[in-house]
Simulated scan of single mutants.
Amino acid sequence: MRILLIGEYSRLHNSLKEGLVALGHEVILVSDGDGFKQYSSDFYITPKIAVNRFFNIPRQLIFRIFKFDIAKIERGIKFYRLLPKLKDYDVVQLINEAPIQTTSFFEKYLLNKIITQNKKAFLLCCGIDYTVVKYMLDKKPRYSLLDPYFENTNLIKHYRYIFDYVSNGHKKVHNFLYEKVEGIIASDMDYYLPLKGHPKFLGLIPNPVNLLNIEYTEPSIKDKIIIFLGINQGAYHAKGIPYFEQALKSITSKYKDKIEVIAAQNIPYNEYIELYKKAHIILDQIYGYDQGYNALEAMAAGKVVFTGAESEFQDYYQLTDTVAINALPDVESIVKQLSFLIENPEELILIGNRARKFIEKEHHFVKIAEKYLESWNKPKI
Rank of each mutant, 00 (worst) to 15 (best):
K17W: 00
K17L: 02
E18F: 02
G19E: 00
E26I: 07
V30G: 00
Q38I: 08
S41P: 06
F43M: 03
N52A: 05
F54Y: 11
R59D: 10
Q60I: 13
R64W: 14
D69W: 05
I70K: 00
I73K: 05
G76Y: 00
L83R: 07
K85A: 09
K87R: 15
A98S: 15
A98I: 10
F105L: 15
I114W: 02
F122V: 07
C126R: 03
K134G: 01
P148L: 01
F163K: 08
K180C: 08
V181C: 09
D188Y: 07
M189V: 12
D190G: 01
H198L: 09
P199R: 06
L211H: 10
N213M: 04
I214V: 06
K222L: 13
I225F: 13
G234W: 07
G234Q: 13
G240W: 02
P242C: 08
E245S: 04
S250N: 14
I262A: 04
N270V: 14
E271T: 15
Y287L: 03
G288V: 03
E312M: 12
T320H: 11
N326R: 04
V331S: 08
I351G: 00
I359P: 01
H363C: 09
S375N: 13
W376N: 07
K378H: 03
I381C: 12
